[in-house]
Amino acid sequence: MAGRRSERLSHKQIFTYLMMGAVVCMLLPVRVTNHLDHVLSVLVAPFSKGSQDMSLMVTDKIHQDDSGEVPSDTPEEPVDATIQDTNRLVNIEQELKYYKDLTDRLSGLRQNQSLDRARLIVAYITGSDSSNQREVKFLDRGTRNQVESGQIVIGWPKQIYKDNILNDEETDAIYEQALSGAVVGRISDAGSWTSSLQLISDPGMAMKVAIEPAPQRREDWRVKGILKGKGLGQISVHLIPATVPVKTGDVVLARSDDEGLPMDMIIGYISSCRRTEKNPVEWQILVQPAVDLQNLREVVVIKR
């Protein structure tokens, strides 16, 4: 009929309403909208993990020699083996300190669980954040697997997991590999089936840490500080007084606490430490992670 307006929405009207909806969503608190992120992860996770595995298989094949066999003494192996051994040495030393403290506290004070008794949940990396600004990985475990926000995550060097994909029943193997690994981040958000791993280099990351001298220095001191991710792969430690004899190569440990980590564990090593005129009372420390954060494939979530 002439003059009767069509009730169907035009594409322009739909677009206008969608843009208004986007503005409203931007005004909502982040904790409300974060839950929706995992809806998409559940659908995409199997495919992105598959594509990741396939591309890693292809790149591994490219590095093989013409004979089709992996050379037994490739230049990479000694370096990875040294990192593994150093990580293991540091973590075992911390475990020894833990048990020494435990024997001192056998008078009946509350006892913490060590790493081997804590529940270790194996999880696989299914993808990365789609923007360059954040350092977040997605895991294929969620609240249904008892993964919760705030739990600490351990990863290990690429050389270990190359041929050894773990499952949840191999608790001894998981524990042994975890000792050769390092803290790589924390669960920032957990959905039912998937969760988000915030890496230590992420701009929003802050963690209590301690610095101890490198094993070869044979010194005995310890200083506490705060680790902060600066984004772009950089990690810094703050609140370390300039009077402490910190040097490149010293060990940065994630401090144990009642909620996250049962015992101190290695995060990385100091890659640079200097004093600046702007703030002469404090060291400007940058940290090299003990594990390559971009090549993670499987990790372990520590449940307390």
Binding site: M19, A22, C25, L28, D37, V44, G127, D129, S131, G204
Partner: peptide, 20 residues
């Protein structure tokens, strides 16, 4: 707009920012 929303859901950005 849908592409922006999908990028919002797959990143840590506030929901609606990439869509807008």
């Amino acid at each position: 707009w849908i592409l922006g929303l999908v990028k919002d859901l797959s990143s840590q950005a506030p929901l609606g920012s990439y869509a807008f």
